[in-house]
């Protein structure tokens, strides 16, 4: 199936001469949830802004549903919904008006029933006649989501949707995201929170310094880059490793009470069996054993550090 969003060799140089994107290429499949991870200033917002038509690209092309975002902007923008990173709202408008306005901008006829559904899903219904300045930050964020959903987009961009958002709203938000996904909506979100990407994304892209470092299925990513750790708790702490354990490059932790063994879980031979035999042979008594899967966070830190 042709990708719903196809970015190729995208470069953006801002007026100041700063190159925010250095030739980004990326395909997004219809219906998937893609998380873009990257530190501050990586270029996430710039990338989204170009796809949505807010910023002109310097070179390269972006196709959305087969249409060029610059030449054929009507076709592309009418199927995209965007929740921006910044909380920008018309302070003196009511929730209902501002959400209806967004629908009009996208060329759709008024549809009060749809707007009502969106507001109810986001627990905003009882606030519909309030002015935006009377709402809390979290509620304003919901309003921005409601605006983005007002015109029934097929692609939804969420630029750091959970910044400054409490646990409840986050849960609500993921519920909405899941429902959208079941309707076949493609969702692209940016985040700094790795747990978030791990929790809901199908694929994860890592972007830094205007370049995509990696983009992969989340599960494959975890598998290929996923290191595991074996932790052995000792009954009696040791001051130094017994000679027989040297080949395993163990780390001593917890004042000598714990041995840490890093291994590659995807490899055929993990070395655990021989390690455990060697531990027993050296006369150490094992109190407990646990393993730990490395998280996206570890992977991310590793990737960014490797490039630096």
């Amino acid at each position: 199936m042709a990708p719903i969003v196809s970015v190729s060799n995208l470069v953006k140089t801002y007026g100041s001469g700063f190159q925010a994107l250095k030739g980004v290429s990326l395909d997004i499949a219809e219906g998937e949830i893609l998380a873009l991870l990257g530190p501050n200033g990586a270029g996430k917002t710039t990338l989204i802004s170009i796809i949505c038509g807010i910023v002109n690209p310097s070179s390269g092309t972006v196709l959305v549903n087969g249409h060029d975002v610059v030449k054929d902007f009507r076709a592309t923008r009418s199927i995209i919904g965007l929740v921006p990173q910044e909380l920008t709202t018309d302070q003196f408008e009511t929730v209902w008006n501002t959400v209806s306005f967004s629908r009009g901008l996208h060329g759709k006829k008024a549809n009060p029933a749809h707007i009502e559904k969106v507001l109810r899903d986001l627990s905003l219904w009882d606030k519909k006649d309030n002015m935006l300045r009377e709402l809390s930050g979290g509620m304003k964020r919901r309003v921005l989501i409601a605006k983005a959903l007002s015109h029934e987009p097929r692609i939804l961009f969420l630029d750091e949707p959970t910044a400054g958002v409490d646990v409840n709203l986050r849960k609500d938000m993921w519920k909405v995201v899941q429902a959208l996904r079941e309707d076949g909506v493609t969702i692209i979100l940016t985040t700094h929170y790795i747990e978030e990407a791990e929790e809901i994304a199908d694929r994860v892209g890592v972007i830094n310094g205007g370049e995509i470092l990696l983009i992969e299925e989340k599960s494959a990513l975890m598998k290929t880059l996923g290191r595991k750790q074996l932790r052995i708790e000792l009954a009696e702490p040791v001051t130094a490793l017994p000679p027989g354990l040297e080949p395993y490059q163990l780390k001593l932790e917890d004042g000598g009470g714990r041995l840490i063994y890093d291994y590659d879980a995807s490899g055929g031979r993990t070395g655990i069996t021989t390690l455990l035999a060697a531990v027993a042979e050296s006369g150490l008594r094992i109190k407990d054993i646990s393993t730990r899967q490395s998280t996206l966070e570890d992977i991310f830190v590793e990737l960014v550090e490797k490039r630096a």
Binding site: C52, G53, I54, R77, P84, T88, D90, L105, H106, G107
Partner: peptide, 17 residues
């Protein structure tokens, strides 16, 4: 005003010439 408040994002990302 929308430029100042930032709500211009919405105008720019809409299918409007």
């Amino acid at each position: 005003f929308p430029k100042f408040t930032g709500t211009i994002y919405e105008i720019l990302s809409s299918p409007i010439s």
